[in-house]
């Protein structure tokens, strides 16, 4: 059974313009799918819709989100919340703001296990220690007693990764998990996520604007423009021959650190106009039923 299937998901600002336009994608168990696109393309919005954390200003107008066959959008709110808590997790973007400053680290890893899944405190603590060791944090016992402000950004991101894997979720949404980090730390964290993913066999929706990251950790990717999936491809095929002109231009625009003389290749205006026309055509089609 597929871990996650999204069918025709449409989201819009309440009484406003659409933010996601009939997005469809699927994710096999243990698969990593990159969601790429420029800012505002809706890539984070998909992750938020899956996890049920869309802002109140936004509403889902149609579609299905099937988590292991169950449509989350048809579940009563309390059931949906518990279901998501039990089998999904989030690796957030900014480790500096994603930990509660007044709670110690230990409870922030074990809270879901104890409060939602009903583990004993002792088992949950043992599990947290094990996970912290797995994300290569020295002296897990001391770290569990620490407050977030006593730890570095890289440490905190490791903790958040450990916490995301705590309940062995079927699906993790990684929302630009390396964007807020130092370039030197980015690589380690990326390697860490890839390693954890491989060991635990967790499916990951990997939101990023960095195609370099996609090439390293993902098997498939969806390219988004203005809330519309313009290309859905296997990563190997995509990097060899992107099918859609917009995603080809996006790939060409990726800066190459190995060749500083190459300069920047912004997405050409003609390509932007073409993809905008596509979005407009889609909207017209929707409007006419």
């Amino acid at each position: 059974m597929t871990a996650l299937v999204i069918r025709n998901l449409s989201v819009r600002l309440r009484k406003g313009p659409p933010l996601l336009r009939r997005v469809s994608l699927d994710l096999a168990p243990g698969e990593v799918r990159g969601l790429v696109g420029e800012s505002g393309a809706g890539k984070s919005m998909i992750g938020k819709a899956v996890l049920g954390i869309l802002p109140p200003s936004v509403e889902i107008t149609g579609g299905e989100i099937l988590l292991e066959g169950t449509d989350l959008l048809r579940l009563p709110p309390a059931d949906r919340r518990r279901r998501i808590g039990a089998s999904c997790a989030l690796i957030p973007q900014d480790p500096l703001t994603a930990l509660n400053p007044s709670h110690r680290i230990g409870p922030q890893i074990t809270d879901r296990l104890v409060d939602i899944l009903g583990w004993t405190r002792r088992n949950a603590d043992a599990r947290a220690r094990e996970l912290l060791a797995e994300v290569q944090i020295p002296d897990p016992d001391r770290v569990m007693r620490s407050y977030p402000h006593e730890l570095s950004g890289g440490m905190r991101q490791r903790i958040l990764i450990a916490s995301a894997f705590a309940a062995e979720p079927r699906l993790i949404v990684a929302d630009e998990p390396t964007t807020a980090l130092d370039v030197t730390v980015q690589k380690q964290i990326l390697k860490l996520i890839a390693g954890m993913q491989a060991r635990h066999g967790t499916a990951i929706l990997f939101v990023t604007h960095d195609l370099g990251v996609v090439s390293k950790v993902c098997q498939r990717l969806s390219v988004l423009y203005s809330g519309m999936v313009v290309e859905d491809a296997r990563v190997a095929d995509f990097f060899r021959a992107p099918r859609h002109p917009y995603s080809a231009a996006l790939l060409a625009a990726t800066p190459k650190y190995t060749d500083p003389t190459a300069g920047l290749n912004p997405v050409p205006d003609a390509v932007i106009e073409a993809v905008r026309a596509e979005v407009a055509a889609f909207d017209r089609e929707v409007a006419h039923g």
Binding site: L51, G52, I53, A78, R81, R82, I84, G85, A86, C88, A89, L90, P92, Q93, D94, T97, A98, L99, N100, P101, D111, R112, D115, I116, L160
Partner: peptide
């Protein structure tokens, strides 16, 4: 804030 959003994904009401 982000840590509140994260707590929501854990299943808290």
């Amino acid at each position: 804030l982000d840590y509140v959003t994260l707590a929501r994904t854990k299943g808290y009401g």
